[in-house]
């Protein structure tokens, strides 16, 4: 029993560790290095031979060895073990997609029969999938900030006092389950619809086994979003793509920056929802929530959100009771 548990534990941790070489993971060493290369080129172009100094925070031991950074890594590994138990490993997506694929056909959806080549179908599917996926990420993120019960869990991500690429894993397990469900919904709908419309032609445009946009996003410095390196794409590009500097604004403690820049890849959703703010290379920001959770470890980051969520529910119930009482009192003659 103990032996099989230890085997499972080691396997899960080894799999987590393998992310460092897995091109499908943002924290792959290749992307960690490519982010430096990308930023180096941009800074050299903008600031000349001293531009590289702006990259120093990326490798600062003070940042990487801080308690906040250690909590990032702790949450990454501990969440991995917990989610391995919470989220079914295989076939969930296959079952949902199978069910929906069958349902659409029953509802009368049939192949379009346009005679398009498989390459065109791949391009169209990849485009639609990326748009749907990016919007769903934006909207989930927006909800995590706007719905108090969800913010109770999302505060974990915002409690980081310093940002490192591993802050991407700074997440409450409940939020991890939400992300899984988001991906399940988007993938099930997109894949099932396209399979009916273009049978045997659906595939994603990939580079080295990675979705083309994810690959480019990661190669071109996605890891800088969660880092102390401030890099703006400039006002024109930032209207369309979220830059590292814009995401850092999202983490800022400044009240003026609250609930801004929810987007992942595209900035258009923030513009539509009036939450868009541009970034710039000179911005100086402080990070964190300003609450006690900022200075706790893994257990605190698992526990405090549960308590906060319970508080939100308790207050919600109490408020409803008060309103009901008030209404009943008014109705009494």
């Amino acid at each position: 029993m103990l032996e099989s548990y230890l085997t499972w534990l080691m396997e899960e941790l080894a799999t987590a560790g393998s992310s460092l070489l897995d091109l499908r993971k943002r924290v792959s060493l290749w992307y960690l290095l490519s982010a430096v290369g990308f930023a180096f080129v941009v800074f050299y172009w903008r600031y000349g031979k001293h531009g590289w100094q702006r990259l120093l925070p990326y490798v600062s031991p003070k940042v990487w060895l801080s308690r906040s950074s250690r909590t990032d890594v702790g949450l990454w590994l501990c969440n991995r073990l917990l989610l391995a138990l919470l989220i079914p490993k295989t076939l969930t997506h296959a079952l949902w997609i199978s069910g929906l694929y069958y349902y659409w056909q029953k509802q009368g959806l049939t192949p379009l029969g346009l005679g398009w080549s498989t390459t065109w179908v791949m391009v169209l599917f990849t485009f639609c999938y990326v748009i749907a996926d990016d919007f769903s990420r934006f909207f989930t993120h927006w909800c995590l900030h706007k719905v108090p019960m969800l913010w109770a869990f999302h505060q974990v991500h915002h409690s980081a006092l310093v940002l490192t690429p591993f802050t991407v894993f700074r997440t409450h397990p409940v939020e991890g389950v939400l992300f899984f469900m988001r991906s399940l919904c988007v993938q099930s709908v997109m894949v099932s619809v396209f399979l009916v419309l273009f049978p045997n032609q659906v595939s994603l445009w990939q580079i080295y086994g990675v979705l083309v946009t994810t690959f480019l996003f990661n190669v071109l410095g996605a890891n800088l979003r969660h880092s102390m390196v401030v890099l703006s794409y400039g006002p024109r590009i930032e209207k369309w793509l979220i830059s590292p500097a814009q995401h850092q604004i999202h983490h800022s403690t400044d009240v003026a920056h609250y609930d801004r820049n929810f987007g992942v890849l595209l900035a258009i959703w923030d513009r539509l929802f009036k939450t868009w703010l541009p970034g710039n290379d000179q911005q100086t920001l402080k990070f964190g929530t300003g609450r006690a959770i900022d200075r706790t470890g893994v257990i605190g980051h698992w526990w405090i959100p549960m308590m906060d969520c319970a508080d939100v529910i308790r207050h919600g119930v109490a408020k409803r009771c008060r309103n009901l009482k008030k209404r009943l009192t008014i109705r009494e003659p």
């Binding site: 991995r80 989610l83 997506h93 991407v168 894993f169 992300f179 899984f180 894949v191």
Partner: peptide, 20 residues
């Protein structure tokens, strides 16, 4: 309609809880 190939590409069983 070729579902398993797409599923393989999507790497549906990804386990990490990653924020954006």
């Amino acid at each position: 309609a070729g579902m398993s190939d797409v599923l393989e590409q999507l790497n549906a069983a990804a386990q990490s809880a990653e924020n954006d």
